[in-house]
């Protein structure tokens, strides 16, 4: 036999099936959106890059941002790569210690 005898997936099926709900973005191409990641940061205007359904939402998603200290998680705020660095960091010294966004600007898919 040249094929796998049995296949089990533990992670991917449910997670990605839920990403496939085609959803029209609520924001039109010409919508002006001003967002910031926390109250210490100024608002800036963002332009979305297109994308599909959930993929677009991933891009704009704010992700919890924090660190582990002596085994305890400390939340420092939120972060989104869709917005300008000044609106991500603000005066939050913890966030400012780490720079982000230095990878990921060369393309929209690696499809080969």
């Amino acid at each position: 036999m040249k094929k796998s005898k049995y296949i089990q997936l533990v992670l991917i099926t449910a997670a990605l099936a839920s990403c496939n709900q085609a959803k029209k973005p609520d924001w039109g191409d010409n919508t002006n959106v001003h967002i910031r990641s926390d109250s210490t940061a100024p608002y800036t205007n963002v332009h979305h890059h297109g994308g599909i359904g959930t993929a677009l939402l991933w891009y704009y998603a704010f992700r919890p941002y924090g660190n582990y200290n002596n085994g305890y998680y400390q939340r420092a705020g939120y972060y989104s790569s869709a917005i300008h660095p000044s609106s991500n960091i603000g005066s939050n010294g913890f966030k400012a210690a780490v720079s982000r966004g230095g990878f990921g600007r060369s393309g929209f898919s690696v499809s080969s």
Partner: peptide, 10 residues
């Protein structure tokens, strides 16, 4: 992987 691509994420 990149964020905006379901193919790459999959």
């Amino acid at each position: 992987c990149l964020k905006e691509t379901l193919e790459d994420l999959t």
